[in-house]
Design a binder for these strands. Sequence first.
RNA 1: CGGGGCGUAGCGUAGUUUGGCUAGCGCGCCUGCUUUGGGAGCAGGAGGUCGGAGGUUCAAAUCCUCUCGCCCCGACCA
Length: 481
Amino acid sequence: MENSQGFVQHITAKSENFSQWYLDVILRARLADYAPVRGCMVIRPYGFGIWENIKELLDKRFRATGHRNAYFPLFIPGSFLEKEAEHVEGFAPEVAWVTRAGNEELAEPLVVRPTSETIIGHMYSKWISSWRDLPVLINQWANVVRWEKTTRMFLRTSEFLWQEGHTCHRTKEEAEEETLKILDIYRSFISEDLAIPVLTGRKTEREKFAGAITTYCVEALMTDGRALQAGTSHNLGQNFAKVFDISFLDKDNQLKYVWQTSWGVSTRLIGGIIMVHGDERGLALPPRIAPIQVVVVPIMPPPSQETVLNAAHNVFERLDKICRVELDAREEYSPGWKFNEWELRGVPIRLEIGPRDVKAGKVVLVRRDTGEKTAVPMENLENVVTDMLSSVQAGLYARAKRFLDENTHTVDNYDEFKTVIEKQRGLIFAPWCGSQECEVSVKDETGATIRCVPMNAQPNPGKCIHCGDNATSWVYFAKAY
RNA sequence: CGGGGCGUAGCGUAGUUUGGCUAGCGCGCCUGCUUUGGGAGCAGGAGGUCGGAGGUUCAAAUCCUCUCGCCCCGACCA
């Protein structure tokens, strides 16, 4: 794309100041705005449109695997949170409390849910009594509140939207299978629908969910070289079942605790989309989740106004049957202004139609990922648009995949490790002895954390990057959001 | 939570050091005419009391105290 700087007058250069660029894109593309409450944001219609598409596509995948949606209360009795030791310790510092209603002090203070394991566990203990009641496969789309000290739009806000799945199983094996099944749904959803390549793996003891026995995760690499945890799937074992007494009589007439899982992704995914696909011109949205997939911009100098507008309406009607299309016929903005605006807002395909095109029976298509322009005969319109939407989706994925590959470094000595983290960032694949001491030391000394232990860890030779003892596995390190 | 920076019209800012403001400018907005294939032009017009509270002073955007919020770097964290 030539002259890319000249067109973008309203956002900070991505190469100059990534953080500021990120915020500018969000505000200028009208994805979200600051709320009058500390750490909170308003998700505007365009940003919420992305979330609605994410919801729809993910929900389909959940339903297809037997999950059903439900809704549990926003308020949780304060005492619930304290029942699971690790869980309290993990969440206590960031929990918001309700202690008063009107002028009355509440007999038992309530917490605003930071996550729903406890209250759902409480209900499950009422609902489950026999092995025939299992499995329970419930998901909830909800808001949660975590009083974070440092907030950042979409990545970490005091309140955010997410889905949380909570399941109960008869056996340990079934629970593990569910945990991994969900991890795979996340992996395929994020790579196929969001066009973001991810790593899958297991969290270390230090990084896992408070109260889980194992946490699996999908990690993505942002274009500033930092990793983003995009989703997690936890095997909760029987920790919560024991605390909330979720038990059942098994086939062998023995009373047993259920085996549970929980898993979630949040509006943070939108932050990931921005940071993976965005460029100097602003947002670039993968077609599958773009609220507007094609924007029709008519170019109508005076004598031809009616002809062009009619043709544009006709094109709109045709495309409306096959994709999410919008006609931008506003007269108060020039075509050039609209081009820049819709690029900033990340619309995958722009369709230009002017007097010359009408005369020639063509339209011009411009794709957001490459800027490439194509003149298309009117009669092929639907086919070409459909193909181009797939092609943009694939193009964005390919570009992100190339970036991930080029920024994943295999390193086996600590000096090189430190240099790479400091100068190039990205992911570092390195051997680790498995001790928390080394994990913490590396973090203190370099700022990098272990993002995940890969799923199919081969028996690996090698010496721990930090202490030099025999490595138990090769793991991915990165600076993370 | 620590260090640094910033809050003046919808947005971006000048003015703050050295109080004197009737707060200046650009974009955007409104009206009209001309325009329309990469952020159109001209003319006219509306809009701010300087994040908030208190104080010093004849006089405060400007000085002092407190407070709220945002950004950056770090710490912490699902």
